[in-house]
Amino acid sequence: MDIEFMRRFLPMYVKAAGLTLRLGATGIALSLVVGALCCLARQFRVPVLRRVAGVYIELARNTPLLVQLFFLYFGLPKIGVKLSAETCAIVGLTFLGGAYMAESLRSGLEAVDAIQHESGLSLGLTPMQNMRYVILPQALATAIPSIGANAVFLIKETSVFSAVALADLMYVAKDLIGMYYRTDEALLMLTLAYLALLLPLSIAFSLLERRLRHAGFGGAV
């Protein structure tokens, strides 16, 4: 191990980690929006949208991100749709993540007992109030662990972005291996960089999970 070498290339990793984090965070945020929309379309049985959401979820969950990216980045320009590598990455990550988030949110909503709906309504809450104060807090509390797992999963998935020439962590490591043949150092720093990004995220979600565990009303705590 050559510490001097590692110190010299640390700034490259920091910059790449920034890109990984920026693309990952944008993708996660958009995934939550797409997931919530799909979940709403299915929950309220909106006629056509409900089917569209169903087909989309199956398509996105059963295909790899790398293939989705190749289609977006190498396929679409051939029929005149040119997207930048970053746009492709975000679109791809959102396409994949939206479906996973939709499933997490759905299982959260399904876990709320029917009696909660009925009690809320019989107390005179409007359907909106019922959703806002009774259903959503419980549904979200149940969904948080799997939303957290999805967030970690999506950031891990960003590692394929190097295949469409985005200078993320993976790309920098490949570059250093190719240019200097410093495989050990490059891979060690790569692994540490992902640990530095994902360990805090995973810990933050388990703390959040513990704080939000107020939904256990009526069940086992």
Binding site: V152, A173, D184, L187, Y194
Partner: peptide
């Protein structure tokens, strides 16, 4: 378990494929 959950599979592939060869 935490290692395989946190380190991306692509990184693991690189570690085994390139790392093993070099080290």
């Amino acid at each position: 378990l935490e290692t395989v959950r946190i380190v991306p599979q692509l990184v693991l592939l690189f570690l085994v494929y390139f790392g093993m060869a070099k080290t």
